[in-house]
Design a protein around this nucleic acid. Sequence first.
DNA 1: AATGAATGAGAGTTCATTCAT
DNA 2: GATGAATGAACTCTCATTCAT
Lengths: 197, 197, 197, 197
Amino acid sequence: MKQQPPSDERRPANEGRKAAARNRAALVAAAREIYAEDGLGAPLSAIARRAGVGQGVLYRHFPDRAAVATAVLEENVRQIERAAAEPDADLAGVLGVLTWHLTRSTAFIGLLHADGADSRAAVPAYAQELSERVERSLRRHLPDGHRLAGVDEGLRLAVAMVSGAVTGPTREQRERRALTAWALLGVEVGAVRPHEE
Amino acid sequence: MKQQPPSDERRPANEGRKAAARNRAALVAAAREIYAEDGLGAPLSAIARRAGVGQGVLYRHFPDRAAVATAVLEENVRQIERAAAEPDADLAGVLGVLTWHLTRSTAFIGLLHADGADSRAAVPAYAQELSERVERSLRRHLPDGHRLAGVDEGLRLAVAMVSGAVTGPTREQRERRALTAWALLGVEVGAVRPHEE
Amino acid sequence: MKQQPPSDERRPANEGRKAAARNRAALVAAAREIYAEDGLGAPLSAIARRAGVGQGVLYRHFPDRAAVATAVLEENVRQIERAAAEPDADLAGVLGVLTWHLTRSTAFIGLLHADGADSRAAVPAYAQELSERVERSLRRHLPDGHRLAGVDEGLRLAVAMVSGAVTGPTREQRERRALTAWALLGVEVGAVRPHEE
Amino acid sequence: MKQQPPSDERRPANEGRKAAARNRAALVAAAREIYAEDGLGAPLSAIARRAGVGQGVLYRHFPDRAAVATAVLEENVRQIERAAAEPDADLAGVLGVLTWHLTRSTAFIGLLHADGADSRAAVPAYAQELSERVERSLRRHLPDGHRLAGVDEGLRLAVAMVSGAVTGPTREQRERRALTAWALLGVEVGAVRPHEE
DNA sequence: AATGAATGAGAGTTCATTCAT
DNA sequence: GATGAATGAACTCTCATTCAT
């Protein structure tokens, strides 16, 4: 018996694979938007709807609410890590990227507020890890004589403090406040921008 | 439309109207505890249960969720105002009282984070007013040459920043971080204590 | 804010999507029964229970209380419209169908009472529209010289009057009263029967 | 020992008696208003509040919800009985008074709708009795040859029919509809007015 | 007698999660 | 793999009724 070659007309398996990845991305994008609008407590059904998929798909990709949040934050954190990994990266530059995410992503602010593990936080354990990755990225570029270098937990606190200052309805306001906050800390910040190679 | 009376047998004692004031106080105290444990989004029923009263009592005293939060925060704010009204008050002293409340009251932190009116915040309009009362109390004692005096929104931002730094499971940790945060801002803080004459 | 999943053990069978249409029909049928027994103000939970579904299902199919009532009434109204659309329809015949519904469906009576928009009515805006559809169906067959033709709002008032007369615990009594009422108005009514081709 | 004459300054006992009657009247009046605004299902607490008394007073005077409704209706019914008892009363005149109450008192309409004992009615057993008193008052003046005289339950049905026609937001509209309804029944009605000697 | 606080059941509504199709 | 209906517990808010004062 001869093996049938895959029919060109219908390759649902492959389509399935591609659709899966597409769905996952759509879900993360939708979650990012929804979080920005309604906060981290927004209904998961809203995210699925915005992504244009059924709720079951959400659960296929993410076991629970925390996993969705993690996925959204992961992208923020990864950009910071990539910025820190650039050959010519310096603290000011990485802080600029960090600040960009702070002023764009409500979820990201929540992450940094929650990192110290308040019991209140809806965002729990995974926040710890993500927060540490952010901190590591920054610490690599912290010069010995830097203001924050000599202070216990200085870096982490500084980031938390700035995130506390990032409030306001408009992006412009949030950005202005963030920059003022860094200035109050006496820390120099580079251009506020995403990290896109 | 049809309302059943509470089951006839074992109706808990109606303690009469003397209990009213006691109940209100119990509700505020319970809310403070619950907020510390579960955040400002905690169910009102949990607050009533902790206070040892029926849910109706909660609604008699507070028309809605916001009113409960306001009542809890009111005490925090009032102590700061009183501290600021002392004859020998100075900025450091008032900040000490502020810091005491920041490290004790989760709800109070939430207040200061929410004041800038994130869309996400469950805490809405009344937060604005309470936040402004805090700011006014502080500004009265802000010397002209002070670090924060020359910066637009300096005082408000500094308080928000410190509140962002106040995280951690133990009071000691939160207090240590708060003091470090003030130090990073180059602002002197007095003894961290409540205001009780 | 925190939502508990339904207790894991003994989750009743999810019968899949085939059940959807069946559930909707069951809800409408249950609502019709409940309305007959307890009036239009009956608790929605009672309707869901009678239909053998969870409350969530009811809310999936009907966004609010009014939608449930509308769905129940819709069938009554539609039958009258169909009867009026018959090639050999005449006023007496359509009134017979109308009367059949009046004596069978408490909700339908409520509809016609509420159409004039009492402030008290739980039944609001949609009643207006349904009531008008009934009126239109009848008016098509109102001969020029008819008793009710010369009177302002004559048709609408006559229907409201008969619906006011339709009281009593048994169907027989309600039917007898309805027919007597029409007779008092000097209006001829055909066979009291549903419209089923 | 001499009997102390009642001090003019404080006669609480007498005041108590008078207050009781005043309170009862205030409650009935308040209930009438509230019923007109919100229907028979309005909260009892609203009635007490409108009357300016505590809820306990309401329960002192009326054992339950039905008793309040009865008291309100009692006044309507009594005026009709008085009108019927006038030496020169005739059917048209009494129907005029009846119609006046129909167009003024939502509760009174409800009474007449409910008299046939729908299960749906919030107004239950006592309605039967009140309704019969109305009917008796009318029947005394029903001439032998009258349209309604030869019809079984003719009088009761006619009243129910007119009450079904009395809808609409304004008193004027309700009154016009009521009169048209009587006209459709071929029954003459006198001046629409309350019975005040 | 009056007051009005307290009680708690229950109604309405929302949502996390499962699962037949 | 995807879909989206079903489930039911939890939450908010209302109100009839009781009862200490």
